[in-house]
Measured scan of single mutants.
Amino acid sequence: TFELKGKVGKVVKIAEDHYLVESEGDKWIAYSDEKLSLGDRVMVVDVDGLKLKVKRIP
């Protein structure tokens, strides 16, 4: 299986209740415990079905 946990991506869209993150050339629906901005670099900390939980990284 394709393992996304630990992968790095970038926030490419902000929606009302989720983010769109591009990682490894694909776009994924993501959510975070912190507020993210367009262009933020993020790391995948968990995968919930087809949704990614991400956190901001420097």
Rank of each mutant, 00 (worst) to 15 (best):
I29R: 14
H18C: 11
I29L: 10
V11Y: 00
M43D: 04
E16K: 11
I29M: 12
K51I: 13
E16P: 11
L4R: 02
L38W: 12
A15E: 07
G39T: 07
V45F: 06
K53T: 12
V47I: 08
K35S: 08
E24Y: 03
S23K: 01
E22P: 00
D33M: 13
S23C: 15
G39I: 03
V54F: 02
T1I: 15
V42F: 03
D40N: 11
A15F: 09
K10F: 10
E3A: 01
R56W: 08
K10L: 11
L36Y: 06
D26T: 13
A15N: 08
E22C: 09
K27H: 07
W28A: 02
A15C: 10
E16L: 11
V47F: 09
K53L: 10
W28C: 02
R41T: 09
M43C: 14
T1S: 15
K51V: 14
V21F: 15
K7D: 03
E16I: 13
L36R: 00
R56L: 10
W28F: 12
S32F: 02
W28Q: 02
G39H: 11
V11R: 00
I14F: 11
V45E: 14
K35C: 11
D40P: 00
E3S: 01
V42P: 00
I14L: 09
E34Y: 06
L52D: 01
L52V: 05
L38E: 10
G6M: 01
E34D: 10
D26F: 14
T1N: 15
G9N: 01
K53M: 11
V11K: 00
L4M: 14
K55D: 08
A30Q: 00
E16F: 12
W28M: 05
L52E: 01
I14S: 09
K27Q: 06
L38M: 10
T1M: 15
V21R: 01
E3M: 01
L52C: 03
I14M: 12
D46S: 04
G25M: 05
L4I: 13
A30G: 05
L38P: 09
D17Q: 11
L36Q: 02
D40W: 13
K53Q: 11
I57K: 03
S23F: 14
E16A: 12
S23G: 06
M43I: 14
E3V: 01
P58H: 11
K13N: 08
S23A: 15
D17W: 11
L20G: 06
G9Q: 02
G49W: 08
R56Q: 05
D46Y: 03
K53I: 04
D17T: 12
T1K: 15
D48I: 14
W28H: 10
V42A: 05
M43G: 03
K10E: 11
K35D: 05
P58Q: 10
V8F: 04
A15T: 10
M43F: 08
G39N: 13
K7Y: 04
K13H: 06
V21C: 06
D17S: 11
G25E: 05
F2D: 15
D48F: 14
L50D: 04
E24M: 05
I57R: 03
R56M: 07
K27Y: 08
K55P: 00
L38T: 08
L36T: 01
L4F: 03
K35T: 09
V54Q: 00
L50H: 08
H18Y: 09
V12S: 06
G49S: 07
K55A: 13
V12G: 04
V21W: 15
H18N: 09
Y19D: 01
S37V: 11
K53S: 08
